[in-house]
Amino acid sequence: MVSSSFNPRQLAGFFAQAAPAVISIGLALVAWELYANYSGIKPTVLPAPSRVLEQALVNRDALLDNAIPTIRATLIGFACSLSAAFALSMLVDFFQPLRRALFPVFIVSQTLPLVAIAPLVVLWFGFGLTPKIMLVALVTFFPMLVALVQGYEATEVEIGQMLRAMGAGRWRVFILARLPSALPYFFAGLRISITYAVVGAIFAEYAGAAKGLGIYMLNAKNNFRPDLVLAAVGVSAALTLVLFGLTVLLQRLAMPWERAAGRQAAGKGPQA
């Protein structure tokens, strides 16, 4: 069972897979750099990527200082939304009528434009952490709830029948079958929601905050510093990618059978 040992062929395969994406991004940056330098456009309108990077390094303390509240709001908001979604998904799974009562409300909550809601939430709850947490939760709660509820529903019917024939009650069936069956759906929802969460936090800060990447972007824009706006965008993109990567890593750790199945498909498993 080789699972975590270093494998040079795997690494080469990873680079071969990543190459097209790296090349296309690289070409886009080169084109942008050339256009910004030679078209005569002013750097206060469109700064070259080299200038963005340079200014990001010069202002790294300020960027870091403003990234920390954003990270905090994202993680706390997401944790709150995740706990609420998990608790409610279980309730809904055990009491089906609740689903019909609650889902319309949540669907409506997803139709609210963030642009309108964010300033209101800030108005009601101030410039502190609370409105950010609420907005992050608002944008991530419903996708997570739907993912979990769908995941429970995806439990193989025959596994449920078999467990009940074994004498398992609803709670045992939930723990033994429905919860693990929902894991792939949970992680799919997690990957989508974590990107929403960062955007939600930044939007909340944009609407009003003492510190944070959102308010930093707003101030940079008002000071005619698009290079710093883009530097902050870069930081938020990096943050999102790191969180996304963490969810992928978490999924690998939580679902070792998926990779086992993958190895079998590659033809290394037993035949009988």
């Binding site: 025959e158 078999m162 033994l176 199945a261």
Partner: peptide
């Protein structure tokens, strides 16, 4: 003791833990 159509093995449990399921219940 009921054996359903298809095997209804739990993909997330190792074979040993799949076979003990009925006893655990």
């Amino acid at each position: 003791a009921f054996m359903p159509q298809r095997d209804a093995l739990m993909p997330w449990r190792r074979i040993l833990d799949n076979t003990t399921l009925g006893l655990e219940v």
